[in-house]
């Protein structure tokens, strides 16, 4: 697993499907401070496209990386504003 990010918090949405990975990521980001990095662990394959689209359409977040590890989809989101 990638460890190059200083992850502030990990959100586990394994086993949950659309729209939960995106919506819970949004809620978790709201609780973080600017500069913090959220790691999201998901098993929903749709989360790859959905979290990418959400990050692109949302101000104040930056999608650093998305990693696919077998059945696990890991997303790194930074709060930038």
């Amino acid at each position: 697993m990638s460890t190059e990010y200083d992850t502030t918090e990990t959100l586990d949405v394994k086993g949950q499907s659309c729209p939960m990975p995106v919506v819970k990521t949004k809620q978790a980001i709201d609780d973080l401070a600017v500069g913090d990095v959220l790691e999201v662990l998901a098993t929903d394959s749709g989360s790859m496209s959905d979290i990418e689209g959400w990050a692109a359409g949302t101000e104040g977040v930056d999608l650093l990386e998305q990693v696919e590890e077998g059945d696990l989809y890991v997303h790194y989101v930074e709060k930038t504003a």
């Binding site: 659309c18 729209p19 995106v22 919506v23 949004k26 809620q27 959400w54 359409g57 949302t58």
Partner: peptide, 9 residues
């Protein structure tokens, strides 16, 4: 689903 996702945006 659409409403909660849009709110996340």
């Amino acid at each position: 689903i659409l409403a909660s996702t849009a709110a996340a945006f």
